[in-house]
Design a protein around this nucleic acid. Structure first.
Length: 273
DNA sequence: CTCCAGGGTTTGC
DNA sequence: GCAAACCATGGA
């Protein structure tokens, strides 16, 4: 257990409810549990500092990168022009959000599942996958790893359907097969530039523009990618007269997109900003 | 009960 | 090239 101070933007609640991670748990108002790989951590806000459940060594080697502390989000927010009132207001409401560095395979599978599902439904399906094919890493929290490609390759179509995947089941089966056989190596394609990687990810059956961009943003940390889903499309239509405002933010467009996505789900709070 | 969800593929023009 | 139909299921 360690205690740390955090200077840059960091809001546990907003990160947990920004729709980028489906396995985070809110233990109570000031305490959240995050999982990645074989590791989990409980972070508790205590006044101006944070209690961290892991060792200093683990924080430095895993979690500091997971929470993207190499990047200054305060600096990114400062790039927003005053004229862009909607994104400006969204960033004020969403201040504290960071783009996490999450596992590539987990992002691919999770966002294939995400299509036409509500966030609670996505969380439910992902949780079932972990419980059924992952490994237990905490009895106290009944916590499991996200299954590896090998572990998921043993799942049958019927078993996957029991996790509520519906018509996405064949998408998952094909994606797992392609990754497990290394027909597409999620690690080695990380060297590809944004557009090449975008096109590579779209070659998965069941992956289109939106899911590919989510995997780019959350799995490959390509902060310039701004996925357009139903919520963002509505904002572009209602607030920007149909003209996509995100490309003008270049390599931080994805961060702006996260502010807007968070804000679009908290519109009542946005009215007061 | 009805409606819709962090879309993508297939089909028809 | 585009628009429309179709997709399974759970949560609200």
């Amino acid at each position: 257990m360690i205690t740390i101070e955090i200077k840059d933007d960091f809001d546990l609640y907003k990160i947990a409810y920004s729709g980028q991670c489906f396995r985070v748990r809110e233990l109570n108002t000031n305490s959240f549990l995050f999982v990645t790989g074989d590791n989990y951590v409980v972070i508790t806000k205590t006044g101006t500092s944070y209690d961290i459940s892991c060792s200093s060594k683990e924080w430095d080697s895993i979690w500091s990168h997971y929470f993207d502390f190499e990047t200054s989000y305060e600096n990114i927010r400062s790039r927003i022009s005053k004229n862009d009132t909607f994104i400006k207001r969204s960033s004020i409401l969403g201040e504290g959000i960071r783009i996490l560095n999450q596992d590539k395979f987990e992002m691919l599978i999770s966002f294939i599942i995400s299509q036409r599902k509500s966030i609670p439904a996505i969380k439910s399906s992902v949780e079932k996958l972990c419980k059924r094919w992952g490994r237990c890493i905490s009895k106290e929290y009944d916590l499991f790893t996200f299954p590896t490609p090998e572990e998921l390759s043993r799942a049958t179509s019927d078993e996957l359907n029991e996790c509520g995947l519906g018509y996405r089941t064949p998408y998952i089966i094909e994606a797992v097969k392609a990754v497990f056989t290394k027909e597409i190596d999620l690690g080695s394609i990380a060297t590809e530039d944004d557009e090449t990687l975008f096109s590579t990810l779209k070659s998965f059956y069941g992956v289109g523009d939106k899911v590919a961009n989510c995997v780019l943003l959350f799995g490959y940390h390509r902060l310039g990618r701004a996925p357009i889903d139903t919520w963002i499309a509505k904002v572009i239509h209602d607030e920007y007269n149909g003209i996509n405002p995100f490309p003008q933010y270049g390599e931080v467009a994805g961060v702006m997109q996260q502010y807007v996505f968070y804000a679009s789900q908290h519109l009542k709070e946005l009215d007061g900003k």
